[in-house]
Amino acid sequence: MRTLAIDNLNVVFSTEEGPLHALKNVSFEVPENRIVGIVGESGCGKSTLINAVLGLLADNGRIAEGTIRFEGKTDLVGLSPDRMRALRGQRISTVFQDPMGALNPVLSVGRQMVNIQYRSGLSRAEKQARAVEMLRLVRIPDAEAALRRYPHQFSGGMKQRIAIAMALMMEPALLIADEPTTALDATLEVATIELLQDLQKKIGCSVLFISHHLGVIAELCEDVVVMYAGEVVERGTVRQIFNDPRHPYTRRLLECDPARQSRRTRHLPTIPGEIPDLRARPGGCIFAPRCDRAHSACAAPQPERDCGDHHFARCVLAREPETADGRA
């Protein structure tokens, strides 16, 4: 069964300069019990995607087309706000980027962890016990004492772990992690990733992990979705994406990852050009203006091409494996 199945999702924001097509024909799946990573540079629509799933799009945004099926049945598109709210925090929960801001500064951690269980129907003591249990699970030392402390008395890494504990408290079917390690330093990042992996196995939920850090995605995720300018340009397993990328954007993105540089260079490689203006999308391939392999066929709209074994890329050259020098 698939925890989340997004099909042909289109999100449009109305702005003063006209409609902005933030997500275009986005389709991918999060299978049960699997960690799926979404990777892409800033402004590629990762956050819009999360908000669309959570039903928290800004007032000027709307889902123009598509379905978001949750746990095989419920279509989250067009679900009433009350029913959506009932899902959030129970079946779908979220961890955000900034652990400093995710906790209310004036309430003790215990108070917040008990508060969040307001829909559980447990007694106060049971809620308290559950909070302690969750803090232990995320390896907060001296969990009982930690409940009495305030957020400012914890380090950033600990706060992020508390946020993870709160998100997993209700044992959701889907955890959306929006760059949860970006604000942490490298050692903490590794620790947090290991913790997430561990908890995912224990609780048996699916994870949608958003990051722009390729190393983290490779380490943690099983499937990867590569997004560019609001479109899914390539998706497949970690092995497929990292060892056999078929879309030129994925290839350039991998080339730009400092961790994958084979030799020291004076400047890190970049992809020339900028993300196109989403108010005036080019008719054909969205990456064509920046692509060094673009040709006449790229001016036509690109469907997702099957590269075999659930590996898809939105490129005319998708069926050509990468050559030795990375160029065809």
Partner: peptide
């Protein structure tokens, strides 16, 4: 952020 977080938690 914590208000956004609370919203996302329903």
């Amino acid at each position: 952020e914590f208000v956004t977080a609370a919203q996302s938690m329903g």
